[in-house]
């Protein structure tokens, strides 16, 4: 990874697939959504690391750093998003890894989305969002070199 960066990401270098850590933060175990998203993103060519359930913000950030991920996707259905999503952003800041993009999914009311974006969460996908909208958003954010 660092070699590629040092070489200045030459044009002929094959583009590395975007690597995404998907995590269930908080106490709820509803993993239907995150698993469907994981499969869809994998099929769309992203590299997916799924952490499993009940991850703390520290664990998620640690996983993202270990895996050299560019993106963290958070899933949560318990209503604790206003505490835990910003805590992940904060932990990234603390670990000087603010370049990692954080997005989330779950039952998040509109007002909360506005506030979460202010606090540094890049995007929130709510119930009924097509998988393609998540894929498109990521491709737009990380255009193939």
């Amino acid at each position: 990874m660092s070699e590629v960066a040092a070489a200045g990401a030459q044009v002929e270098e094959p583009a590395r697939p975007v690597r995404i850590v998907l995590a269930k933060v908080g106490l709820d175990g509803h993993d239907r959504g995150v698993k469907v998203v994981a499969r869809a993103l994998r099929d769309a060519g992203f590299e997916i690391i799924y952490t499993g359930l009940r991850q703390t913000p520290q664990m998620v950030v640690e996983a993202a750093l270990q895996e050299d991920a560019q993106v963290i996707g958070l899933s949560l259905h318990s209503g604790a998003h206003m505490t835990l999503f910003p805590a992940v952003v904060e932990e990234l800041r603390r670990r000087r890894a603010e370049d990692i993009v954080v997005f989330g999914g779950g039952i998040v009311p509109e007002d909360d989305i506005v506030e979460l974006k202010k606090q540094g969460v890049a995007e929130i996908f709510t119930p009924g969002a097509p998988l393609q909208s998540i894929i498109d958003w990521l491709r737009n954010r990380f255009p193939a070199r």
Partner: peptide, 10 residues
């Protein structure tokens, strides 16, 4: 500690 943000929500 891990109850933070979860109390009384669900």
């Amino acid at each position: 500690p891990t109850s933070r943000g979860e109390i009384g929500h669900c």
